[in-house]
Design a protein around this nucleic acid. Structure first.
Lengths: 343, 343
DNA sequence: ATTAGCACTCATGAGGATGGAGTGCTAACA
DNA sequence: TGTTAGCACTCCATCCTCATGAGTGCTAAT
């Protein structure tokens, strides 16, 4: 599969680079002129014919230039792409934006997506730390009114969740305090996804003096800690895709924006990265309707080796992959550092 | 300004109704055929010429039918529009969706926007209760780590805000509890916007034993209670506008979606309704770039007479105003009731 | 193996004819 | 005096045609 001779590689790389830049099919003349391979257009044409036969490029129509196929992009990404070095200005700009002290992880992440989308003119997406893998740091019940209590949960990743509960009128702040103490003693340090039946039973028996309240609270906890909520996906620059010439068709815009808004597909894509670290999915490689014309460049960010979430860029397959990779990685690293420092 | 004879009114109403339905300029023949006014197309043409001279309708080009001008819509809305009665199915559907018990006002509002956008195929927007006019219900500081505390504020409208604070290592849960008590005693029942210098000073002097902590907390409170955050705007069906034929132009889509995403302009529009209750702004009547081709139908919702926020629909000026009004009002009323019941 | 030359294809855009929808005007009519 | 039929006129939308140009594939010469 690596069996491309040097010149074919150069031609393919030239096609990808040019197409990414101009969004127009690339002809043999253009390549001969702009990328001096020292051969004539005719020679390039021959190479292109070969590349097309091999499936790396394709022709929109007979008399047009060539554009990379998904397979072509894949080969480019795997074998041809040169690492993009961020300019000092870019580095500085990013670091500056991360220097401001933040206290909540959500803010930090939202800022990161904005930053990323701003610098790439693509759509940025970050998956916040999974609630499941976070651990309980503290749980507290607060009385709000005679019949209402507020349940507050804060995790080790500084994610705060809360829910208002209906309680019996007779229950006092003191009761709530006692329940809170038991919950903390049983749950502190435990991963949220480990909240299983047996823990529940244990807590319930310990709280037998407040059975009704206890079960209300546990039910709420179960809801709060489920990962199924869409609020773990942060988007930035959603509308940037409207600038891409491939999205001049309204129906495409609509289906893509729906997917982004919906969040479900995205979460699915981000939660199951093929492997830890960098991940590039080109076009239909992600088997999801509607983003088959998009690529997704993602990497993971972590805290002390523990996987936290995913940082990614979404754009048309015609994307500056080198730059996307560098920026995603740089921002993910900066985010990791910032989180570590914040905690 | 009301000086339109009966037949002119009928013609104008017919033009508006037909145009809202078909999105095509309306000709004299069409009116004569579909709306039996008992006169010939020629007569209608004469009336139309008059209406055009008066500025109620206009012609896209010489040989096209007429479309309502903004002024025409205004007249229609003020004088001609017949009240739309929700069908029993519609009422039932809405009430059913409001029957589910919710504990947080944000959920309730988000559901309302979704409901509204679903039923109108327009974009729905709801402005959540102003933090400023809400009052403190309870404030609590919770220790999370030796150097971190969580500040939780819950208002009478059940809005919960929180922020993580850096605290001195020496500070104990007990200290936090004392501070919380003072804050509650001073602030409970107070409107958030009344948080002024003198209250601050009073609290600071009372908390002189914890000056540093107290000022940290007050600073955080000030941030939390500022209304400038964009998270008070809830949108539903943002992408519905893409179905409208008037938005087949990408640049228009982009500018409108940017405005919706940005939130600032929207908040401005919703926070300053001309008057309490129903409000209809047609096209350029809202002096904001980018939504000059849209209309905004809003009404307010309240709790025990106290103004809480605004419920609205955004769509092209070619909008079914009668239905929009009915639905907005019905949903606003349902929302008011649901909030009252929730609290 | 490379390249010049040439015929061929096809998207694109400009011009021009055609049809149809709708108007405004005028004159006839009740 | 208000209404209507008739008719000429306007202008958009559609379709065709044609010229243009970019780019190819093939062949033959180097």
């Amino acid at each position: 599969m690596m069996g491309l001779d040097e010149r074919k590689k150069k031609v393919l790389a030239a096609i990808v680079n040019d197409y990414v830049f101009t969004a127009e099919p690339v002809g043999s003349r253009t390549i001969a002129r702009k990328y001096n391979l020292g051969v004539s257009p005719a020679t390039i044409r021959n190479e292109m014919a070969d590349l097309e036969e091999l499936g790396y490029i394709e022709q929109p129509h007979t008399s047009a230039g060539r554009i990379p196929s998904n397979r072509g992009y894949r080969y480019y990404v795997d074998c041809l792409m040169e690492k993009y070095c961020l300019t000092p200005q870019e580095r500085e700009y990013i670091q500056e934006r991360f220097a401001q002290k933040m206290t909540e992880i959500e803010d930090l992440i939202q800022r990161s997506t904005n930053l990323l989308s701003l610098m790439t003119h693509q759509t940025a997406v970050i998956l916040a730390p999974s609630m499941g893998r976070s651990t309980f740091q503290r749980i507290q019940l607060l009385q709000v009114e005679p019949t209402k209590a507020l349940l507050v949960v804060i995790t080790n990743t500084r994610v705060v969740e809360h829910q208002v509960l209906d309680i019996h009128p007779g229950i006092t702040e003191h009761d709530l305090e006692r329940v809170s103490r038991v919950l903390n003693s049983k749950l502190k340090g435990l991963a949220l996804e480990q909240l299983k039946e047996d823990t529940f039973d244990e807590i319930l028996s310990e709280l037998s003096f407040q059975k009704k309240l206890a079960s209300t609270v546990l039910e709420a906890l179960e809801q709060l800690t489920s990962d199924n909520k869409d609020d773990r996906i942060f988007l930035g620059g959603t509308l940037n895709i409207l600038n891409q010439p491939e999205f001049k068709d309204i129906t495409k815009i609509k289906s893509l924006l729906s997917i982004l808004e919906e969040g479900k597909v995205l979460r699915d894509l981000l939660e199951h990265p093929g492997n830890i670290g960098l991940n590039i999915r080109i076009g239909g490689e992600n088997n999801h309707e509607g983003i088959s014309e998009c690529s997704l460049v993602t990497t993971t960010y972590q805290l002390d080796g523990q996987l936290l979430g995913t940082v990614g860029l979404i754009g048309p397959t015609r994307m500056d992959y080198a730059k996307a990779v560098s920026l995603v990685e740089f921002v993910a690293a900066a985010l990791s550092r910032a989180i570590k420092q914040m905690l």
